[in-house]
Design a protein around this nucleic acid. Sequence first.
DNA 1: GGAAAATTTCCGTGATTTCGGAAATTTGCG
DNA 2: CGCAAATTTCCGAAATCACGGAAATTTTCC
Lengths: 202, 202
Amino acid sequence: MGLVQGLSSAMTDEASTPETEVLSLLPTRLRAARRDKGLSLDAVAKLSGVSRSMVSQIERGESSPTIATLWNLTRALQVDFAGLLEGVDEPAGIEVLRNANVPLIANAGQGCSIRILSPPEEVGRHEVYDIRFQDSGILDSAPHKRGAREHLTVISGNVRIKAGDKVEMLGPGDTARYPVDQPHTISAEAGPAQVFLVVQDA
Amino acid sequence: MGLVQGLSSAMTDEASTPETEVLSLLPTRLRAARRDKGLSLDAVAKLSGVSRSMVSQIERGESSPTIATLWNLTRALQVDFAGLLEGVDEPAGIEVLRNANVPLIANAGQGCSIRILSPPEEVGRHEVYDIRFQDSGILDSAPHKRGAREHLTVISGNVRIKAGDKVEMLGPGDTARYPVDQPHTISAEAGPAQVFLVVQDA
DNA sequence: GGAAAATTTCCGTGATTTCGGAAATTTGCG
DNA sequence: CGCAAATTTCCGAAATCACGGAAATTTTCC
């Protein structure tokens, strides 16, 4: 007995946040998803191939489903498998960051300043930067983790992108997307430039 | 016998994409994650509280773990539970979208044109737009799904953001972030304006 | 090469999930 | 109220997961 067992013994070195409880949210969320769609246990059973009884047990938290069965359930209920285990936080109102208060990284690269537009909480998943280059300014970066991509749009000026061994020239209004699990460099080519950079999954 | 069973019988009405196979990626990914960190089966066993044998079986795809045990594993390996089941595609080189070829939505809202900077594949997870308003231009949007957020930065001009019942005024260089699981409106306030908009998890 | 150490896989046992059908509960309607 | 239909929960039986220890494999070092 003990669906959400363990974790007690050997804990990793990070903060012991109460997020161990995330699993306990799953039953409620599944039931909610089903009721939202106005489906009966039997209906989702037929849709998902998981038996009525099992669906019932899972929804009541009396058993910890196999990922295979959970996957089938999410398909039938059309809920996002990923989001199902996410915590719930999300600031409520509009969060404003004034031009004057934007955090700045002045001495990264040469002749460029980076304005950080995304909140620290989002680091890793989703980072947004406004980067301004002086003439011939350069910013080169070490590889991020695999799967990471950058999405760059030129606001003004001309820039040169180098990702791995590929090179591209961009003018105002141009956009480039590229994987950054490799060394990459952004540089202003003739005169100053301003770019908007979104890093995902870094 | 069949770890990735079912799905054969009653299929939902959507396209039968081969994404049923996603589960088959999990073993490989887990093993990769462990090796990346230079850990032995025994090490993660002690860290996660899951037995060596089980970890081995899971990594070889010989058993479909319970979400509880999978969760414990992800904690020990410090991998994102969500991303673990995501598909894999990712174009390789630098993808360039020229200013002249940017897809345009001309008649959304009033007096505003939307330039779509992100690729269609990313829709839902991560969308990037360059929006230009004429004087008094307005764009209001219906609620997206819960958890979605917009990240807006003003390139030029002055804009007014309304999300739910909250309102904010932004000038050049200002950034706002807000939940969009509710009706929301962006409008140019005095003269034309240009904004950069990132929508996540729509 | 060869032995020792470490790592991984195999195997028997016990606990848990999963299924199909029966009982219990809830819902709908005269 | 009371009965019928629908929905949900309960109950074995079979399948699978999960564990600990032994065997097999790989790695390390002399």
